[in-house]
């Protein structure tokens, strides 16, 4: 259950919010990860309001076996979109996907929230409506 208590101020917090996933994959696990991501994670994530903007692989080659990093860039519809995602992601299938990821395909993983520099003043103001 997310720590969700109600709707945020959408007018002040409607700028896009970005979710950045970075996964360092085990050698040779790129295809296994991509297949599972496409079938077991992405459809549900999109239903929770995550729009996939980019799926990037580095180094950008399959010519030789190298540890590869996958970067996923998602967009959410503002603060309301963030809490919409969070109110729905404490699900067994979501938790199982990331557990599989940590156990089978990746050696390390991070998820960060981000916004454009221009959005920061408005996002900060959203937390100071009743200051």
């Amino acid at each position: 259950m997310a720590e969700s208590t109600g709707d945020g101020d959408e007018a002040a917090g409607s700028d896009p919010i970005f979710v950045i996933d970075e996964l360092v994959l085990r050698d040779g696990q790129l295809d296994a990860f991509l297949d599972a991501f496409a079938s077991d994670y992405r459809p549900g994530a999109e239903a929770r309001g995550q729009r996939l903007l980019h799926l990037l692989v580095s180094p950008p080659t399959r010519a030789v076996a190298l540890p590869q990093t996958v970067t996923l860039l998602w967009q959410l519809d503002g603060i309301a979109g963030f809490w919409g995602m969070r109110s729905q992601n404490a699900m067994e299938d979501v938790i199982a996907f990331w557990a599989d990821c940590d156990a089978k395909w990746s050696t390390s993983r991070s998820r960060r929230l981000a916004a454009t520099p221009e959005a920061l003043p408005l996002l900060d103001a959203a937390g100071r409506v009743n200051a």
């Binding site: 945020g8 603060i79 969070r86 979501v94 998820r111 929230l113 996002l123 937390g127 009743n130």
Partner: peptide, 30 residues
Amino acid sequence: FETVEGLQVDYMSSPVHWGHIDRWFDPEMP
């Protein structure tokens, strides 16, 4: 809070909340 709006609006909207502290709670976050 002085009113419930401080909780439902300000607290839930602060980027320090959803963009930083919430990672300790989010089931998708390592």
